[in-house]
Structure formats: C-alpha cells, structure tokens
C-alpha cells in the first residue's frame, strides 16, 4: 500500500494520560499487562505451588495454610483475574480472525464483555475464596 505524500511532519499528540482511551484499547492494554503478569509471576508461582503441594502431606498442608493468608489470597486473585482477562481478550482475537465481531461496533461490545466478564468471574472466585 503506497502512503500518500505528506506536506510535512504531522503533529504528534500522545499524552497517554490526557487521551480518553476507547474500550477496545483498554481491553487490549489489559491483555498485555495480564500476559506479562502471568509470565513474570504466574508461571513461577504455579510451578512452585505444584511442587510444594505434591511433595508431601506436610508440605501440602503448609501450602494450603500459605495460600489461605489474606495477602496471598489477594495476590492469587489478581492472577486469577489476569488468567481470565487474558483468556477472554484472546478469544476476541480468535473471533476477529474468523471475522466475527471484527467491525467497530461489535468489537467495542465484545471488549466491554470480555473486560467485565473477567472482573465479574474474579469477583465470584474471590467471594467463594473468602
């Protein structure tokens, strides 16, 4: 695709704090943040937890006591949200690949749906965990 010739440098205004982001942009940003979080914290935490919980009945109980701590529970809840948001936001991409909800209107609605569904399900998990 040939770019049209431009008269000169166009003004750039990219103050992220001043721009009101559209909902798909927010969902997309959270998709990336949740992914990074799952890589940096989620994977090592899950492997450590799996190892500890399988090691012995004593370490299994110690692991249960550890994850029952309110601060740890809250951190796990953040990871649950990250997993859910990443999953739902990812499904949006797969749908868009097959041209489902790829138009602006439906894409905006699925962005709201994915973001809200992840938060709502996280809330359900949180309520059940407490």
């Amino acid at each position: 695709m040939a770019a049209p010739s431009r008269p000169g440098p166009r003004p750039v205004y990219l103050n992220l704090l001043a721009i009101r982001q559209p909902v798909p942009a927010i969902a997309s940003f959270l998709h990336r943040v949740s992914g990074a979080l799952l890589f940096l914290v989620g994977i090592p935490a899950a492997l450590w937890g799996l190892q500890a919980s399988l090691a012995s009945p004593e370490r299994y109980e110690a692991f249960r006591a550890f994850v029952a701590h309110p601060a740890v529970k809250l951190a796990l809840l953040v990871l649950v949200w990250a997993y859910l948001h990443h999953l739902f936001a990812g499904l949006r991409h797969v749908l868009a690949d097959v041209h489902v909800a790829s138009e602006l209107g439906p894409a905006r609605r699925t962005a709201v749906l994915a973001t809200v569904a992840a938060l709502a399900l996280t809330l359900v998990v949180g309520v059940r965990a407490w």
Partner: peptide, 12 residues
C-alpha cells in the same frame, strides 16, 4: 504455555 509466553514476551 511456555511457547505462548515466548511469543507474547518477544512482542513486548
């Protein structure tokens, strides 16, 4: 998961 994480982290 690990392959998926590689593609994502490389993009970042």
């Amino acid at each position: 998961l690990l392959y998926h994480a590689w593609v994502g982290m490389r993009n970042i």
